[in-house]
Nucleic acid binder design. Structure first.
Length: 647
RNA sequence: GCCCAUGUGGCUCAGUGGUAGAGCACACCCUUGGUAAGGGUGAGGUCGAGAGUUCGAUUCUCUCCAUGGGCACCA
């Protein structure tokens, strides 16, 4: 055999007189490297391959070693195997299925005659980490498919047999550690001791192959890291996320209340309503600027409306319906069909287009019980919804204007980190393929023309049209779907909408469904998590609290309270006979951006002592300046307090 | 809708087969105190709802409701 050349990242070349494995290349470089090798990446491909992979001539190889980001995939892959092994050693009656690596960890789905209890998980964690200490060598074997099927059938591993049959390959790879083995394509570690520690996290029910018609399996979530320190760090982030949970924050801050009589339908308290209304009026400002008109449409319709819109066929399970006498009514789950009726109310000319109508109507959707979640998945909500009826040649400008509007809003709110997803036709849909081709084509053209980066989500569109989803990435790097823009050729058709063109003939308008915040409910939930409850002053339900030191400062405080009220500031004078530290603590917990302290000093020289949520103090601030500056900050809807703005 | 767990005063949580406890919050009293909890006293719960087992159920069983972790659904 001729020489085999392997190219390394430092542009050096290693030569072999056989086709080496990744590990063999590592060994040729050094024994320390070989010991730390966990996999490889070849020819610039990000996919991590098994260290036992045989490399052909002229392969560009990057060795994945322990401690690297890429190595986690290998470690977790093997960790899933060890976990499955541990489960079967503890409970031999449990059958294995699959166990993939996911972000931040891995899971394994088991077919178990019993549900795993928390005690089982503790036992399992012990067992798993005991197995790691045995440091068994992982070997790879290639079996003919027939042998694999026969073997797994004998073992009663019916799910494995199904997978192998579906693969339809001639041979399959098997990974072994000790006596335990599993069908797998890898990659895996050399020895199980390379996994330092495995943390079992939780259990869940999950359907075989993700289909609710299939049997339900027992899923165990777990994670593994390169070191105990990294694991600790990850667990800390989980804790942080828990603290920022909007359900906790919205309760602690007194914004939202839930009652079992209204599942999935939150009350907004007098404080929560302030946040809600401020956001709504901010959007209304945008509507003026971007040429939208606001409308109000009915809450309940004769069901014939949804029959015509196509919702009855595609969305029926989610509609709250009621029968009055002989007549079927439906509570509106979305504004669009009603808006189509309104469009048809007057004869439209091409001169009337684009016709942009916004609606803060309350929507109700009967969600499956298990889907409800705090403010982010509710049964009743209000979208910052608008529909734009326009000509095809106006589409590009409309999409552009929407993206500008959205960018402005997101930046104002400190949410500049967002991504665009382009979702194409789903299986369950209305309209001909021809219409879909057209709609998808226009949308993609617009994205390209505008030079926007996007990712395609095949089959994820709405049933009436393709869409752009705006995925906001929050402070903890979690993605949330908020804004959306959907193209719809179908509903104008169902409602036979027309406009008279320049040619004096009838034409059909295109309908754009769009929202920037998504729904106010969901947005407030996400925004609370993003900001950890520390809202910008203009959105804070409580903006200023004045705290006197003794009752002798009462007069000065009352006057200041009055001045701030006149400046439009939401201010509260805490005149309780309590110590200052006590009042401060309460104000901190309620995340009030400005805490004003008044004592002898302040009364004497007409100043205020200001404390921010950061704990920063500024004494001797001129009272008149404070009133002026906070008024200005609120009017401009600044993201930061005026103290921080200055710095 | 499915699997699992949970449900004790406004909130956070102990606890028990013999009808309940703490801290915070609340009320009253004392305290006038400069940047995250001053002290005392008191009120407040038929232990999510219904049924069953039992001499007796908040505790055990079942059903329902709600919540939580997932799955599925949804955009």
């Amino acid at each position: 055999m001729s020489q085999v050349r392997i190219h390394l990242p430092d542009n050096s070349i290693k030569e072999f007189d056989f086709q080496p494995t990744v590990l063999q290349v590592a060994e040729s470089i050094g024994s320390r490297l070989a010991k730390d090798t966990l996999g490889g990446q070849i020819n610039g491909n990000p996919e991590v391959i098994d260290l036992r992979t045989v490399l052909p001539n002229d392969t560009k190889l990057k060795i994945v070693t322990k401690g690297s980001e890429e190595s986690l995939e290998v470690i977790r892959h093997s960790a899933a195997h060890v976990m499955a092994q541990a489960v079967q050693e503890l409970w031999p009656e449990v059958k294995v299925t699959i166990g993939p690596v996911i972000e931040n960890g891995f899971f394994y789905d088991f077919d178990s005659p019993f549900a795993f209890t928390p005690e089982n998980l503790k036992e399992l964690e012990k067992k798993v980490n005991f197995l790691l200490k045995k440091n068994e060598v992982v070997t790879r074997e290639v079996w003919p498919t027939a042998k694999a099927i026969e073997t797994f059938e004998k073992m009663g591993e019916t799910f494995k047999v199904e997978i192998i049959k579906d693969l339809g390959a001639d041979e399959v790879s098997i990974y072994k550690q000790g006596d335990w083995f599993d069908l797998c394509r890898g990659p895996h570690v050399q020895k199980m001791g390379q996994i330092k520690t495995i943390k079992i996290l939780s259990t869940a029910g999950a359907y075989w192959r993700g289909d609710e018609n299939n049997p339900q399996l027992q899923r165990i979530y777990a994670t593994a890291f390169n070191s105990k320190e990294e694991l600790a760090e990850y667990l800390k982030i989980l804790e942080e996320a828990k603290k920022r949970d909007h359900r906790k924050l919205s309760k602690d801050l007194g914004l939202v209340y839930n009652h079992p009589f209204a599942p999935g339908a939150p009350f907004f308290t007098e404080y929560g309503t302030i946040v809600y209304n401020e956001l709504q009026s901010y959007m209304r400002e945008g509507y003026k600027k971007y040429g939208y008109s606001e409308v109000i449409s009915p809450q309940i319709f004769d069901n014939q409306l949804y029959d015509r819109s196509g919702h009855d066929a595609n969305y029926k399970d989610n509609i709250f319906a009621t029968q009055v006498g002989e007549r079927d009514f439906a509570v509106k789950p979305m504004n669009c069909p009603g808006h189509c009726l309104l469009y048809g109310a007057t004869k439209k000319s091409y001169r009337d287009l684009p016709w942009r109508i916004a609606d803060f109507g309350r929507l109700h959707r009967n969600e499956k019980t298990g889907a409800l979640h705090g403010l982010t998945r509710v049964t009743t909500f209000c979208q910052d919804d608008a529909h734009i009826f326009c000509r095809i040649d106006q589409l590009l400008d409309e999409i552009k204007s929407f993206m500008t509007f959205l960018d402005e809003v997101y930046n104002k709110l400190g949410m500049s980190n967002y991504k665009i997803f382009f979702s194409t036709r789903p299986e369950k849909r209305v309209g001909s393929d021809e219409v879909w081709d057209k709609a998808e084509g226009y949308l993609e053209d617009a994205l390209k023309t505008l030079g926007l980066d996007y990712t395609v989500n095949e089959g994820d569109g709405a049933f009436y049209g393709p869409k752009l989803d705006i995925m906001f990435v929050d402070a903890l790097k979690r993605p949330w779907q908020l804004g959306t823009l959907q193209l719809d050729f179908n509903m104008p058709n169902n409602f036979d909408l027309k406009y008279v063109g320049e040619d004096n003939a009838n034409h059909q308008p295109v309908m754009i469904h769009r929202a920037i915040l998504g729904s106010l409910e969901r947005f407030i939930g996400v925004y609370l998590e993003h900001t950890a409850g520390r809202l910008p002053t203009w959105l804070s339900p409580r903006q200023v609290v004045i705290m006197n030191i003794t009752s002798s400062h009462d007069e000065y405080c009352k006057k200041l309270e009055q001045e701030l009220k006149e400046a439009g500031v939401r201010v509260h004078y805490d005149d309780r006979n309590e110590k200052l530290g006590y009042k401060i603590r309460e104000a901190q917990l309620k995340q009030i951006p400005y805490m004003i302290t008044v004592g002898d000093q302040e009364v004497a020289d007409s100043t205020v002592a200001v404390r921010l949520l950061t704990g920063d103090n500024k004494k001797g601030y001129a009272k008149s300046d404070f009133v002026k500056n906070i008024k200005n900050e609120i009017e401009n809807k600044n993201l930061k307090t005026f103290f921080e703005e200055v710095n």
